[in-house]
């Protein structure tokens, strides 16, 4: 695999233009426009010398509910890498455009908390396409290194609806599919909510402003409708961040957190947050959480936090 080191962070508006270009009929024939179906290229982008800006982190922390600490919110590096993720998907060799892709799952592993002033090396690479009942999936792997050591990792599973780009859905048998993430324990459905969140219609725009993720599906109902949504939808990574902020005081230094994005949250909305400690021998300290519709209880997101064993053994929570 070839790793391309970038000298500076890619330009987001330009990437959006390239990401959206495949929506124009025939544009995919151009060499610098993604499209044409086919396989995902072997490509890794790297950007060194990345440093978070305290004012940006503060704005992000406000929107997501984190306290502004000397450590980065565990979801923040994902945001630092967003321009690289877009650049990978806007590469001319990419088989389809990024607009319209659906974020199914995300796993973040924090090996240690990252300092707000630390200099980071970001790496983003896609993996091969896999079949899925509703199309095909691939993952975007984002790594954060300090020096030569891996400190943080994120794996996002993306769905390209409609199989091979022809628009036809490839029916898949469940047994043949390799799940992109292992199944994990979820919050028992009868768990009472610990909080209710009233999400207003401007949430998508506010998160877009702090994250740079201005996908039209999050910005306004009028922009979301042509892409198949009846209203603007909340960013999945906002929902994940909001959950981790709600559990902030219980997060260990080293942990992994998986989420599965279920039904999109149409804005505005009233949702419930619930969490539960998973109590069995194999999952000491695991915390499952969920965001569900406040009225009907339909789940929007399921998640699970797993403390890393080394760290857990080291600190050992006092009771």
């Amino acid at each position: 695999m070839s790793t391309v080191s970038l000298a500076s962070s890619p330009n987001i508006p330009l990437l959006y233009a390239r990401a959206a270009a495949p929506l124009i009929p025939g544009a995919s024939l151009l060499p610098f426009v993604p499209g044409g179906g086919g396989e995902i290229p072997e490509l890794e982008l790297e950007l060194a010398g990345v440093k978070a800006d305290a004012a940006d982190v503060a704005a992000y922390a406000r929107v997501c509910g984190f306290a502004l600490r000397d450590k980065l919110p565990p979801t923040y590096p994902h945001l630092l890498a967003f321009p690289l993720q877009m650049a990978v998907m806007a590469d001319g060799s990419f088989p389809f455009g990024a607009i319209g892709l659906i974020h199914l799952e995300n796993r973040i592993a924090q090996l240690r908390p990252l300092g707000i002033s630390e200099e980071l090396i970001l790496r983003v690479r896609p993996t091969k396409l896999l079949p899925h009942p509703k199309g095909r999936t691939f993952t975007l792997v984002t790594e954060v290194r300090t020096g030569n050591k891996l400190a943080w990792e994120s794996v996002s599973t993306m769905l390209r609806r409609g199989g091979d780009g022809s628009g036809a859905v490839v029916p898949g048998k469940r047994g043949q599919l390799r799940p992109s993430a292992e199944n994990f324990a979820t919050v028992p459905t009868d768990t009472p909510a610990s909080a209710e969140w009233r999400l207003d219609g401007g949430l998508g725009r506010r998160y877009a402003a702090v994250s740079g993720d201005r996908n039209p599906i999050h910005m306004h109902a009028l922009a979301a409708k042509p892409l198949g949504f009846s209203a603007a939808i909340a960013h999945g990574m906002w929902t994940k961040a909001r959950c981790l902020a709600a559990l902030e005081s219980r997060l260990p230094d080293a942990f992994a957190v998986d989420v599965r994005f279920r039904k999109p949250i149409l804005l505005p909305s009233r949702v419930e947050f619930a969490s539960a400690e998973i109590d069995d021998s194999a999952s000491d300290g695991d915390i499952a959480f969920t965001v569900r519709d406040a009225k009907r209880g339909v789940p929007h997101l399921d998640g699970l936090i797993r403390p890393s064993e080394t760290k857990q053994a080291k600190t050992g929570r006092k009771k």
């Binding site: 305290a54 004012a55 306290a67 502004l68 600490r69 000397d70 929570r317 009771k319």
Partner: peptide, 27 residues
């Protein structure tokens, strides 16, 4: 340097450091 930090952010940061220093986690 702290133009964007609230009282609660700063107090939390000061308490965090105290908790770490004296092992008050879960206390």
């Amino acid at each position: 340097a702290y133009a964007h930090a609230s009282n609660q952010d700063m107090l939390t940061a000061a308490l965090d450091g105290l908790v770490d220093r004296f092992g008050l986690e879960g206390e």
